[in-house]
Design a binder for these strands. Sequence first.
DNA 1: CAAACTTGCCAC
DNA 2: AAACGTGGCAAGTTTG
Length: 414
Amino acid sequence: VWQREQLRERALEPLMRDVELPLVHVLREMELAGVRLDVARLQVITERVRGEIRDLEEDIFRLAGTEFVIGSPQQLGEVLFNGLGLSRKRRGKTGFSTDARVLQAIRGEHEIIPVIERWRELNQLDKTYFSVLPQLVDGESRIHTTFLQAVATTGRLASTNPNMQNVPIRTDLGREIRGCFEAAPGAVLLSADYSQIELRVLAHVADEPVLKDVFVRGEDVHTATASQVFQTPADQLTLGQRSRAKMINYGIVYGLTDFGLADRLDIPREEAKAIIDAYLDRFPGIRAYIEGTIERATEAGHVTTLWGRRRQIPELKARNWQVRTLGERLAVNTPIQGTAADVLKLAMIRCHRALSGSGVRLILTVHDELLFEGAPHDVEAARAIVEREMVGVWEHDPPLAVDVGVGRTWLEAK
DNA sequence: CAAACTTGCCAC
DNA sequence: AAACGTGGCAAGTTTG
Ligand SMILES: Nc1nc2c(ncn2[C@H]2C[C@H](O)[C@@H](COP(=O)(O)OP(=O)(O)OP(=O)(O)O)O2)c(=O)[nH]1
Ligand SMILES: [Mn+2]
Ligand SMILES: [Mn+2]
């Protein structure tokens, strides 16, 4: 009863009625549908990778001069920092960190480091995907995730058992794994992913003229940042570089410091500061939006999305500096990430309705992407419908845009 | 011995 | 870890 009263008081009834409740059935059907996994293809990759892991282990033990549990950060730190005397960077609660950014920073100090980095990549994918996914398929070789509708504080969905929202794609091996998810025999997949979604939401809520203009012109901010930071012509950029630029673009908006950027890019702090300053100077409305949002959130004690989703931010009242600045970053991030979540949920409902009886069904959702499955002819017809429904959720400036692809596998469709 | 915590890392 | 955000998962280690 008190929950219902709170819903009314906080004007959340439209969100509940028009978004969350209709979404339940859409999610249920997606979970039942599942997505097909090519187990044989995955098996071939698995055997090849496990062979390489064994070779890497031998190399690591030889270079270290001792055998140890590579997967134990404690033992690895002992070998690297005491045994080999390599430089220590950050330290955690238990000892000196050995994470990927530390290894990147000391890569030149010893030939064992690149081998460990490779072992980490392969071993992580082995234990998380190769060892787990084949056990989860049903009689039709399909995997059924569970979507969590009320876990993420911003309104995003989460996915569990297995998490289908963090299937690898960024490395070559990751792309091979992504390529193991496929359509049913005779069918194809259609992937539709919003272009630069949170930057578009930001351009609107911050009313940032330069950023709006970028989207009106049809330009790509991630590519532009990559080109600037990596000093490379736009048409020569790799997917990896654009992906790094994405991290930079969102990082800066949500409070990334020169220290943090320098660490992530492995560059001097001054260079990192120059990148951040250039970014915020180019889009002056972002600075103003950040400051205004923090001020209003501190006053109100909460923030809301465009559809009225609300998050209390008690951290803003903290006297502890660490907690309070966390609250400031939450105040900026939540309305934007949350608005993008609202958009996707509405798009799911609209697409589900528009495609009922079409032979094309929604099978996955990944924060700003929808994945559909159907016969090639039906999917071709669905293409325009999906794009129209996804773009049509948003009646603001700048408009949203969607990248659509079709293929046999999830990798090919992207 | 299992639960809880820590570290590290995948995705968006 | 000092200070982009949202998640889930596996393994090692500590705790009870
Ligand atoms: N704070 C933060 N948000 C991120 C990060 N990566 C992705 N996101 C959020 C913001 C994105 O708009 C949203 C969807 O991710 P995508 O990979 O689809 O990127 P985006 O839509 O910006 O670009 P795209 O044109 O699809 O390649 O997820 C990140 O590193 N930090
Ligand atoms: Mn996107
Ligand atoms: Mn996406």
